[in-house]
Amino acid sequence: MIEKKGMGTWLTHAVLILGVLTVAFPIYVTFVASSLTLREVLDAPMTLIPGSHLVENYRTALFSGTRMNATPVAGMLLNSLIMALVIASGKIVISLLSAFAVVYFRFPLRMVFFWMIFITLMLPVEVRILPTFKVVSDLEMLNSFPGLTIPLIASATATFLFRQFFMTIPDELVEASKIDGAGPMRFFRDVLLPLSRTNIAALFVILFIYGWNQYLWPLLITTDHRMDTIVIGIRRMLAAGDDQIEWPVVMATTMLAMIPPVLVVVVMQRWFVKGLVDSEK
């Protein structure tokens, strides 16, 4: 190796440490605020040493919510979890099926379907807000989990990823399973699915975060507080009007909103990086 010693190394570490600290600073301040009383938070400059009200604030957030927005965060966490899980697994299942059809079957309209799926890649919800909202409202899916999740389940990215992967599987495997008398669905279940395990795990991490972090869609689709996801809940807590915002509880909620997806990324880091790099190819 070349020039790995000397002044440069210290400088490199200094840059990295500074980067890590800058990235972590907002979270640290949020954590500290979630462990103080409201009076302590309002007493500028706020202390940067954690206080003693941590358990109390998280308990208030989880089980009763703020005074102005008395929706317990525990329910919001459950909503977010359901939404993230349904979107992630739904996208994976329907993408696996359609990639399987496109790669292993020869049928009329095959390319039409392929391009139709491709188009969804180009139309994020942000650019067709109103008409999509109208469709969901006409189907009477407002304020419901199907309304929150189904419109987000189509996935061009995941379909392409699985298509790409299926193309690398040797033809001999198909032939062998045919000779052994296995039909297409048997081949799908016993050969393709086990081979796709790593891809599924990698994609799952990315899609779980995608689902958990949705903002615009739940904002439009849900008006009933019982359907609030945690990300939307924070926004409602902050819109306290003339009332004093209960910062410690809001900050505890913010921490709770970050912990699940961050945990998923850190614990499944290897699959996360693979999923990220693969799905953008």
């Binding site: 972090n213 970050m258 961050v262």
Partner: peptide, 12 residues
Amino acid sequence: LLIWPYAVAPAV
């Protein structure tokens, strides 16, 4: 230590 902000929602 550098990759986890990816998991934080933009609104958060």
